[in-house]
Amino acid sequence: MEEDVTCFRTSLAEGFKICDGSITDEEKSSDIKTGNDKSTFDFSEKTWTNDFALIVEDEKLYVSKAVLALLSPVFNRMFQTDFREKDQTELNLPGKKVREMRDFLRSIYPGMSECISDENVYKLLPLAEEYQVTTLTAKCERFLISRLNKELPADDTKMMLQTAAIYNMEDLLVKLCKECPNSLPEMLFRQIFSYLRKSFQRSWIN
């Protein structure tokens, strides 16, 4: 299974000449935001429930250790084992963007409004994978599926296809083949079909 996934991902990367799942600032500015960020909570104020701060681009995002540990296995291990963060009250996150981390926290925190959009979905997925928040990956997959239609531009279809391969989104792959078959080169369409067939066969056997 692992070998099939590796070969499949390699084929996509070579076929589309895309090195990773990121989008440039230029591409980002051209996106049309369709999600509604109804929450005004930006994690900038410390409350009695917050006992930890994530430092991103010199800004502090105040959070609860218990909530992060419950939602993310990575944070859970960090706060319980011999990691230096166990007894600290702050964690610096170099290389992260404060806007993206706010969207990430809004997307996983209980009671927060849905904030996944065309503008941030491809930024949230790497964070979901890094912190092993599988529920967020599933939310992003559902959002991408909701964006599918036969008039979807070819470049968007290719981005979704690569994303589906990178993050093992089989439901999205199936929908892509069904809803946008004309946007996929025939060779890659056959590869996707073969990959899905083998995957489903293995699931059925197991």
Rank of each mutant, 00 (worst) to 15 (best):
V5Y: 01
T6W: 02
C7G: 04
F8Y: 15
T10V: 03
S11C: 10
L12I: 13
A13C: 08
G15A: 11
G15D: 04
K17P: 01
I23A: 05
D25K: 12
E26P: 02
S30P: 00
S30E: 15
D31C: 14
I32P: 03
I32Y: 08
G35W: 05
N36W: 08
K38I: 09
S39K: 06
D42G: 05
F43P: 03
S44F: 02
E45D: 14
T47C: 11
W48F: 11
D51P: 05
A53K: 09
E57Q: 15
D58K: 14
K60Y: 14
K60I: 01
K60H: 13
A66Q: 14
L68D: 04
L70Y: 12
L71S: 00
P73R: 07
V74K: 06
F75N: 00
F75M: 03
F79A: 04
Q80T: 15
Q80K: 14
F83A: 06
R84I: 14
R84L: 08
K86I: 03
Q88G: 02
L91R: 02
N92P: 00
K97T: 07
E100Q: 11
D103G: 12
P110S: 06
S113D: 15
E114K: 10
I116K: 07
I116S: 08
E119M: 08
E119S: 15
N120C: 09
K123R: 09
L125A: 13
E129N: 14
L136F: 02
A138T: 13
K139Y: 06
E141R: 03
E141S: 10
R142Y: 07
F143A: 07
S146V: 10
R147G: 01
L148M: 07
K150A: 12
K150I: 15
E151H: 11
E151A: 12
L152D: 06
D155H: 08
D155C: 07
T157R: 00
T157Y: 01
M159T: 10
M159L: 15
L161C: 13
L161S: 05
T163V: 15
A165Q: 09
A165K: 12
M169F: 14
L173E: 08
E179N: 10
E179K: 14
C180L: 04
L184G: 05
L184H: 09
P185V: 04
M187F: 11
F189T: 01
R190F: 10
Q191F: 02
I192Y: 05
Y195I: 02
K198Q: 11
R202H: 08
S203Q: 09
W204S: 12
